[in-house]
């Protein structure tokens, strides 16, 4: 692959001057460390703690109802996972190109498909498993129309 600088580079494991940080700056994104609170888990060098607030916040985002015992368990498990992954923080990654994607090694680039139509599902098949439908549409609990305007491109 070629790095953003133009010299040919493998996608993984070879030193370049932090292209992810450059790319994020170019794209006008927050740099790591300035994101929402829950991304910034405390600790380093192996000891990582996840707060109860973080667990509850993620539970709300994921639409999960956790009782206090479950939340405590999640706190412990997520902490353990982050501590395990946190081991990587012990490495000196100065000048190492970030792993953009775990498949980057297996597939040098994303395979593309020609713009040729394929037959869609037969009429009705799409709705066959829907709990409720009306006039060829999926019927869902009422959505406040104002919110419906958010439409494409997401919120």
């Amino acid at each position: 692959m070629r790095s953003a600088q133009g010299e040919p580079r493998p996608l993984l494991g070879h030193p370049v001057a932090d292209p992810l940080v450059r790319a994020r700056k170019r794209a006008g994104l927050r740099l790591p460390g300035s994101g929402p609170a829950w991304y910034n888990v405390a600790g380093g060098g192996g000891s990582v703690a996840v707060s109860r607030e973080t667990v509850e916040h993620i539970a709300v985002l994921a639409r999960l109802g956790l009782d206090p015992a479950e939340a405590g368990e999640m706190e412990r498990q997520l902490g353990a996972i982050l501590a395990y992954v946190g081991k990587l923080r012990e490495l000196d990654t100065e000048g190492v190109e970030p792993t953009f994607h775990v498949l980057g090694r297996l597939l040098p680039s994303l395979p593309l498909r020609p713009d040729e139509p394929l037959p869609p599902l037969s009429p009705g098949a799409a709705l066959a498993n829907a709990p409720a439908s009306e006039r060829g549409c999926f019927l869902v609990p009422p959505v406040i129309p104002e919110e419906a305007e958010k439409g494409g491109g997401g919120g």
Partner: peptide, 19 residues
Amino acid sequence: EEDTGKLLHEGVESGSLVD
């Protein structure tokens, strides 16, 4: 990116329709 589906509200009392 990819576009989302469309929600229709007109004339539906029981909920919203999705296309």
